[in-house]
Design a binder for these strands. Structure first.
Lengths: 333, 333
DNA sequence: ATGAAAGCGCTAACAA
DNA sequence: TTGTTAGCGCTTTCAT
């Protein structure tokens, strides 16, 4: 518990040099089994724990992995972080979290902090558009991007466009002809892709598109409610909504219910708690954020051993959780 | 960006000693303004960033703050962590997250990791019952406990008993005479306190207590569904439920709806997403996890300067979010 | 296969 | 007020 014991104490106790202890610690195979045994015994006896600081100072890289996301209290990202942590613990690495609030400046600041901490690697949900900064950053620290891809970097993302098309297709198949898209923020690639998928589905179903049904809603802030009421007061209001932003989805659902418009069908990109409990139940594109985190971490580990490997853009498949029938089992709806 | 510049480079550029640079860095006031200026200029010019590793090695303490909680993907804790992070960023500290999964061994392991990292302080939601370990730990690292108190340690918690009483009182006032308590796990202090508050409210309303209405549900795992169906199949089933565990609350709500029993009134300890959107809407005891995190951090900062100050048990007030009327505005219910 | 010595970047003592 | 020296705990030459 004291943590005062240093490598030299272990060396003394095992009557070897500090270097031999170091070798044992790092699993160097060219150590005499007898000595190794002595060292291991001394380590246990003294309750020795190596100092990450000293190691980091010497080697230039430590046992910290950074996870930089929009916000850790966003369920999508908190699950993702949890997935990362589960993996990290297996590799004996610690997870430093940092949120960007979708602010490029803050993102930069957080990344630089991690750089000064000599983080061993970074998992990042990129907010800024400044790719050149990331490219340069990448040259000193392995980076794997999640949720949103950046060309030239490793990434783990989902196929936003196709998944969205599939989701909207369900609404069209249910007979809806006026389908709104709520949560479109052109600032984000994902958002733009989801809009494309939405348009694909409309075209596929032979429905005409209508700009009025796709209001722009800033990702941050709570303009969703406004956009929703605007949508509903159109002369030809939508009968169904595609919620393209998992973060805002619960707010929209709540607002829809508060307005007493439970008749409006909704499908969401990204699952969320109680999506199956509201009436009517809400079908979702399931992104599996936890798995996304785990995959990103695995890729990061590969980059540790092979930092110059050619960037991989891993596309995860999504699965559509259809809750169309669910509404009939309740007493409501 | 290179991060290769060390203090000696700055010293050379400013034509002072490294110690003077160090003084400027640490805001020591006894530095000649002229020299200070020169140093600051050099720092900017060289884009110098101090090495936390070296500093930590030398001083024995670094810029890392640990947050050890049950699970970071639990909305309560992810909000709490977010509150901590917001504060930490202001103090130039980094946040390391670690989850315990309510496992005492894992908690211990995570705490020891943070110890070896020489974390400057730890915010902990204690899972283990081994207080003596924590007391000893405390002697080397400042610790502030959240959600659950440990005697002898600083803590930020809510008044579980009184808050629960208030919540259950609302159910009694609505005319319910058979009120169940779901989510009781005697392993946790909070859980026991909430049960007490529940009993207080029953007594206050002159309702008889019934052990059958308070099934024990292990905190981890998903025995809630089973407990729920057991409750509902009693000869005298409850007409209302007090959900004492925010984590399981959404699952219970979903199950209740899946069973088509939207007629059952529910009140939850801890607010959750869409509690206002389900029908009937669910009133909640609001714990303000984000504020809890911020307060814990503030206390931690005090402990940095005064590590031997007498432990404070900060009790946060909760506010009851009454959504009783909400159910009438929807088309359902 | 093992060890001695140097040094990573910083700050605590001490000296000037 | 400022600088010099030493050393935090580890790993990396380089010698043995």
């Amino acid at each position: 518990m004291k943590g005062q014991v240093a490598i030299k104490d272990v060396a003394a106790a095992a009557r070897v040099s500090t270097k031999t202890v170091s070798r044992v610690l790092n699993g160097v195979s060219t150590v005499d089994p007898t000595l190794r045994r002595r060292v291991e015994k001394a380590i246990v006896a003294l309750d020795y724990v190596p100092s990450p600081a000293a190691r980091s100072l010497r080697t230039g890289t430590g046992s910290l992995v950074g996870v930089v996301v929009d916000a850790i209290d966003d369920p999508f990202f908190s699950e993702l972080v949890s997935g990362v942590e589960d993996m990290a613990i297996e590799f004996g690495l610690d997870v430093v979290v940092a949120s960007t609030r979708c602010d490029a400046r803050r993102e930069r600041q957080q990344l630089l902090r991690l750089l000064s901490q000599r983080a061993k690697g970074v998992i990042l949900a990129p907010a800024g558009e400044d790719d050149s900064f990331l490219q340069e950053y990448r040259s000193s620290t392995p980076v794997v991007t999640v949720d949103r891809a950046v060309t030239g970097l490793d990434s783990v993302t989902v196929d936003d466009r196709t998944s969205s098309q599939e989701a909207v297709r369900h609404l069209a198949a249910a007979g809806h002809r006026r389908i709104g898209l709520l949560g479109y923020d052109p600032l984000f690639v994902t958002s733009r892709r989801r809009r494309e998928g939405y348009l694909d589905a409309l075209q596929e179903a032979g429905l005409r598109t209508d700009e009025l049904l796709v209001p722009e809603v800033p990702f941050a802030g709570n303009g969703v409610q406004l956009a929703l009421t605007a949508l509903l007061s159109l002369s030809e209001p939508p009968t169904a909504l595609f919620l393209a932003n998992a973060r805002q989805a619960p707010a929209v659902v709540a607002a829809v219910h508060a307005l007493g418009r439970g008749d409006i069908a909704m499908v969401s990109f990204g699952d969320f708690s109680l999506a199956d409990a509201v009436r009517p139940a809400i079908s979702c594109v399931n992104q599996e954020p936890r798995l996304m985190g785990a995959l990103a971490f695995q890729r990061l580990v590969q980059l540790f051993t092979d930092p110059r490997s050619v960037p991989e853009e891993h596309l995860m498949t999504t699965n559509f959780v259809n809750r169309t029938g669910v509404e009939h089992s309740g007493v409501n709806g």
